[in-house]
Amino acid sequence: DLTILNDFKSINSQITNHLDFPWQYNFPPFFTLQPNEDTKRKQLDAWCDLVLNYCKFKRIYQLDLNEAQNTELFSNKKLDRKCSLELISVILDQLVKANRAEWVMSGEGKNVKKTTKCFIYWFSLDEWAKLLYEYVNKNSLQNTVCTIYELIDGDEVRKEPFYKLDRQIFFKNSEPGVKFF
């Protein structure tokens, strides 16, 4: 499971580390949805970990169901195995259940529809909020006004984990004390 990172210094080093695929990635049955419930649970756990680690490593904030199928995450060229769309959506649903992902919705009111895109929260929204808040605290920026650009794209934050954070995720932030204008 992903642990909440209290030690901010270790964040950058973790991100730049070489990504190791787990052993399951080279095991052909990993790419077929297992009918046996116990087996399936283990399989999906492994998939969720892999997806989060992979997205964190590549700094991916959104996955598109259809596009993702052909990335190295879901298809192993060496084995000639590829996840079916069904399996990918099961994995993403599993991540949503664990509050580690959220389907991107389109439309308004009664017409809200699930799209094929999915936010991936390799840090949960709360974690993002905390990271931002810690940064603000550390730099004594309380009760000041920062532009969004400054906070996530500026040179000042180049070394922070939320550098180039997806804006949609940024706006989902619900941490009290940060106000948007």
Binding site: W23, Q24, P28, T32, P35, N36, T39, K42
Partner: peptide, 24 residues
Amino acid sequence: GEQYGKLCRDETNIDLRFYKNLFL
């Protein structure tokens, strides 16, 4: 064997293969 959790499947376009259930 799959039901007992001893085996797991690998379904491809070509055939259905069963592997030792390394997940469990």
